[in-house]
Design a protein around this nucleic acid. Sequence first.
DNA 1: TCAAAAGTGTTCTAGATACACCCATGT
DNA 2: ACATGGGTGTATCTAGAACACTTTTGA
Lengths: 230, 230
Amino acid sequence: MDIDSYKKHQKILVAVDCIIFGFDGSELKALLIKRGFEPEKGRWSLMGGFIRENESAEKAAIRILYKLTGMKDIYMEQLHSFSDVDRDTADRVISIAYFALINIKDYSEQLQLEHEAKWFHLSKIPPLIFDHKQMLKKAQKMLQEKVATHPIGFELLPEKFTLPQLQSLYEAIYEMPLDKRNFKRKILSLNILNKLNEKEKESSRKGAFYYVFDEVKYEKLQSANGVKWY
Amino acid sequence: MDIDSYKKHQKILVAVDCIIFGFDGSELKALLIKRGFEPEKGRWSLMGGFIRENESAEKAAIRILYKLTGMKDIYMEQLHSFSDVDRDTADRVISIAYFALINIKDYSEQLQLEHEAKWFHLSKIPPLIFDHKQMLKKAQKMLQEKVATHPIGFELLPEKFTLPQLQSLYEAIYEMPLDKRNFKRKILSLNILNKLNEKEKESSRKGAFYYVFDEVKYEKLQSANGVKWY
DNA sequence: TCAAAAGTGTTCTAGATACACCCATGT
DNA sequence: ACATGGGTGTATCTAGAACACTTTTGA
C-alpha cells in the first residue's frame, strides 16, 4: 500500500466475466449471451456482472453462473484480471474473469431462451464486445494447460462416460487427434477411473463400456505423490 | 454484465500488491516492507499501492516496483486477484497481485533504507498483514510451476552466471538437491545458453565458466517447437 | 454380410535417474 | 600436499509415440 491514506484514492467499478465451456459429445463450445443493455446492447458477450459490496469475486462468479445456468457447484477457476483503462466504453471497469466447465446437456433450453444465450464452437466465435475475445483465448489456453495436469475434463462430461467420449473431449481441447490405444493406456494408468459393467449403446452397435471418475482414488494419489497428472 | 445500468453499482478500491523474489547466490528471498501507514502500520507487508484512475493494473505494478526498487523492465506477471470482503481491515479493497523477479544484487541499499524494506528467506517470513502470506505462498507455487516450463530463472541472476549458480537457484526454487551432471545435460540440451571463455573465480579455486542466456536462440525455439521448456 | 465403432499389444525412441572419480587452483 | 568446488560419462529405467488388425452387433 501507498503511504497515502485510503480516502484519497479513486474507487473503481469491478466486474466478473465468465467464460463457460461445454462439450456436446464432439465439439468444445463456449456459452455467449446477447448483451441486454447499453453500451453495446444486442452484441455477443460473455456473461458477467458487477461485484456487490458484500461479496467476493468468487461469490459474484457463482451468483452469475447460477443466474445463467441454474446450476450450483460448477467447476470454476479464476483466470485473470483485465484492467485496461478503456476496456469498457461506458466507464472505467476492471473485470476479473473466471472460466467454468459444465456438462452441456445439463444446461436448460429454458434459460438459454431467457438470456438469449447460445453455444458457439470455438472456431466460430462471433465478434465480441470489449476485450472478451482476449479473455476467451486466454481461457482456452488455460484449459489446455490445466487439463494436461489436472483431472478437470470430467467436469465437461456426464457422470458416466465412455473412453471414446473422453478421448474426443481431449481431442477437442487439444485440437488434435489422439491414438486410442495410447490414450487408453495413459488414462487408465492413472488409476482414477472405475469401469462399469454397463455399455453405452447409442453411438455404436458394439457399445462402449461406461467409466466413472473415482474422486477417492484421485485424492489418495494427490496426497501420496506430487501433483502431476496425465 | 448485469442488465442493471452501471450507475447503480458500488465502486470499490482496487490495489496492486507485488511479491518480489530475489536470489542472493544461495537462497531464494522475498522483499517485504514495514508498512508506513494505518491500519497495521509498522507491520511487515508486501509492497503495494492503489490503482489510479488513468492506469491499468500492469502500469500500477510497474510504477510500484519502480518506486521500491528504482528498476524498470522487471520481469513481472499477474498472479491472482484477492477479493474477500474483509481482507483489508480499513475498507473494502480488492487486490490484484503480481509477482516479480529481480537480481538481488541490483537492488540498492539506499532504497532499502528509505522504504524500511528487507529481504526474507522464504522459510523465515515474519507474520504479514491481511492475506499477504497467502499471496506469497501462491506466488512461490507459481514460480515453481513457471520455472519448470519457461526460462525465467535467468531473471534472478546476473547477466553472466555459472552453471553451479544456476543449479543452486533451481535447488532453491524447488527446495531439493539436483544432480549436477543431469542438470548440466538437461539445461545445455535446450540450446539457449552460450558458454563464455571466462571464469568466475570468487567462489572456488578452479573457477567456473560463465554462461549467458541467448534470447535469440530461445525465440527461435519458441516459434519452431511447441512451448515446453526444461 | 457388411458397415461402423470398440477394443487390444508390441516395438522403438527419448528423456529421466542414478551414480563416482578426476581436475585445477590457492593456500 | 591438501582442501575446495568444478567438471565429466555410462548404464538403466520409464514414459511417450508409432502403428494394424480383430470383435461385436444392428440393420
